[in-house]
Design a protein around this nucleic acid. Structure first.
Lengths: 213, 213
DNA sequence: TGACATCGATTGTTCAACAATGATAGTCGA
DNA sequence: TCGACTATCATTGTTGAACAATCGATGTCA
């Protein structure tokens, strides 16, 4: 299964994150297996992995569906982010290789902002925060962030107003990087705390508006 | 699979954590499936879940074996713990339901210490820290801790000197709980930082001695 | 209208088979 | 004798079909 299924798991993961299957979509074993050209058993193994990662939801005897994070999930995701990201930034070294990734993400975000390519702006924002977590040099924390970042992407898909969601943070990413390099990790960590509060508020606001109208 | 396999996954998980399969043990699909009375396919699905949780290691075409955490893993596990536990304690409320769980864990640890039941002492210690994480009210952080706690148990199994590993921390748990209740979260968080450093050093020391002879 | 029984579709699970891969053992040559 | 090579074999990866178990929907009846 490592051959076909590892590929299969990644392929499915990418397609879900890319929004090919909208959040909440039921994933039928039979039809999806046929569509992907694999057997039901192989597909089910991939399902278990993705369910464990929180990307799909598995209800016994009712099948799996793409996760559709709610307000509680978003709140918890940001709570987890506030536990990890500021601390990683505070303790991070400006000489760490991940700093280059941070800079690249900032620049990609700025370029995509100008091109009004909101999808890529969102990807760049996530890459920026991924790089922040990478400062901690902890595979386990990176894996946690990878999973919650994927969940957050699903939440973004539900909202479907990428400009409001991603655009405001390109400037903040640049500023945060400069604070980190010029004033050090602790100062940047404080700034990131506010950043995350604002980001959470933006997402939750969009969610609330979604429910009302 | 939810019926048989959810049970199956939990059963396997428990047996691994309990040390029925020593760290590093190869788990043959055929023989284990026969032993457990399930089919290979069903067992493989459980394997995927446990592999995702870090309890077993999966090498393509070579099967799965019980994880045997090394020094790097222990270091990373404690790094992750230092990111989560002190912050959870610092922000935790003394009125939180998890405080009762903390107290119960302390008392169970003290009783088991007197009975020289090191296995239960270890379980109680883990329950104590689990309760600390529960203070954060974050399902995702709890899941992270659940996984790394299980890995840590495997590391303990490798060392196999439960008294030195668990006994010293019963007193510290009691002290930490009292600090939390009497002087508040931040003070307790500071104490927990030192606690975790000491704990890590204890485990790593035992590991090093293990390699040398 | 609402409770109930029936039906159908899907999931849960098993089994048997075969391809692909990795490890092992045995062979050959230097 | 030793090392490289090859053949063999056991195990994993994957498939397809089959059947039981369960859920949801449909339709029936009071």
């Amino acid at each position: 299964m490592a051959d076909v299924e590892d590929t299969l798991t990644n392929a499915l993961r990418r397609r879900i994150i890319d929004g090919e299957f909208a959040p909440g979509t039921r994933l039928s074993e039979i039809s999806l297996a046929e569509k992907l050209g694999v057997s039901r058993n192989t597909l089910r193994e991939a399902f278990r992995v993705l369910a464990e990662q929180g990307l799909i939801e598995h209800v016994p005897h009712r099948g799996v569906s793409v996760a559709s994070p709610g307000v509680a999930d978003v709140v918890d995701i940001y709570r987890a982010r506030r536990y990890v990201e500021p601390a990683a930034l505070a303790a991070g070294s400006p000489l760490h290789p991940a700093v280059a990734a941070m800079r690249e993400a900032v620049e990609l975000g700025e370029a995509s902002l100008e091109a009004r390519d909101w999808r890529t702006v969102g990807t760049a924002n996530m890459a920026f925060h991924d790089a922040i977590v990478a400062l901690a040099d902890s595979p386990r924390l990176e894996r946690l962030f990878r999973d919650i970042a994927a969940e957050l992407r699903l939440a973004f898909l539900e909202i479907d107003n990428p400009e409001a969601l991603h655009a405001p943070f390109v400037t903040r990413n640049r500023a945060l990087l400069e604070t980190f390099l010029e004033h050090g990790g602790p100062a940047a960590a404080t700034e990131l705390q506010d950043y995350l509060v604002l980001s959470e508020r933006t997402v939750l606001g969009a969610f609330t508006r979604l429910r009302q109208g």
